[in-house]
């Protein structure tokens, strides 16, 4: 029973803080908008209104990929920030409480996913208004499931790094060697079909590619390159693996 109220406590904490840092929400939308407006329009103007015969403009084509990018940056950093927590504030109090580490881990995942979900909803509204995104009830539901799976995976991944790292010096390394490769190798900005084999191999082993692929299929109606069943299998597998490794990393985390 206290595990459930503990889970609620952890979520409540993250949510309270989130509502008090609205400026963070706004700034989290600036980067994706720059990609969509500047990069999308800039490159899109050279590529024409009908990008590689998909019927979508380039800005619309990369919209799902930019959503994924927003999750990647937001959620991974959310997880990494427990390094700061470890030092000065609340985490110690949480770790001393009679709660299992698994509960603490899930509380964090839940809190981080809620924050991310709100950001993504805002981005989605902007997409419908300005970037040619058309959603039906079904495709909205599918989008939510896909984004939720990604968020759980990436918050967990961030928490894994956060639990294993002891100082914030590793932040830059994680950005360079984790976030950027996951993003650039996901096909967020280009179609993956006609890539050279060596590059395609990297894209194919990147689990995030399958999220982008599925998202593009359900949001834009562009046929999935890997096939939707494969996409979902990879997404679910990735989320499960991250959650398992994450709760393990939390159990052995020192503080």
């Amino acid at each position: 029973m206290s595990e459930i109220s503990g889970l609620y406590a952890l979520w409540y904490r993250e949510f309270k803080i989130f509502t008090r840092e609205i400026s963070r929400v706004v700034s989290s939308l600036v980067q994706p908008l720059m990609w969509l407006v500047i990069f999308g329009t800039g490159l899109g103007s050279a590529l024409g209104e009908n990008f590689i015969g998909t019927g979508a403009s380039y800005s619309t084509y990369i919209f799902p990929g930019i959503m994924v990018m927003t999750v990647l940056f937001g959620s991974l950093f959310f997880g990494l920030y427990i390094i700061m927590d470890k030092r000065v504030d609340f985490l110690k109090e949480v770790l001393v409480a009679p709660l299992s580490r698994t509960t603490i881990f899930f509380g964090k995942v839940l809190g981080g996913s809620t924050d991310g979900a709100i950001e993504i909803c805002l981005l989605l509204i902007l997409g419908v208004l300005f970037f040619g995104i058309h959603l039906t009830l079904l495709s909205l539901a599918e989008t939510i499931v896909i984004i939720a799976l990604l968020m759980i995976s990436i918050v967990s991944l961030g928490l894994i790094f956060g639990a294993l790292m002891t100082s914030q010096e590793g932040f830059g390394l994680v950005v360079t060697f984790v976030i950027f490769p996951l993003f650039f190798l996901s096909g967020a900005l280009f179609p993956v079909k006609s890539l050279p084999t060596w590059l395609y191999a990297f894209v194919a082993i990147n689990p995030v590619s399958y999220t982008v692929d599925a998202l593009r299929a359900v949001m834009l109606g562009i046929p999935a390159s890997f096939g939707l069943p494969v996409d979902f299998a990879v997404m679910i597998g990735f989320a499960l693996a991250m959650v398992l490794i994450g709760s393990w990393a939390f159990r052995r985390m020192k503080f």
């Binding site: 029973m1 206290s2 109220s5 503990g6 609620y8 406590a9 952890l10 409540y12 904490r13 309270k16 803080i17 008090r20 840092e21 504030d89 609340f90 109090e93 949480v94 409480a97 009679p98 709660l99």
Partner: peptide, 18 residues
């Protein structure tokens, strides 16, 4: 937690300690 009020910190503690 700096971002929370004193009372909220107490409330969280109560939840976590069942």
């Amino acid at each position: 937690d700096d971002m929370l009020t004193g009372r909220e910190n107490l409330y969280l503690h109560a939840l976590m300690y069942g």
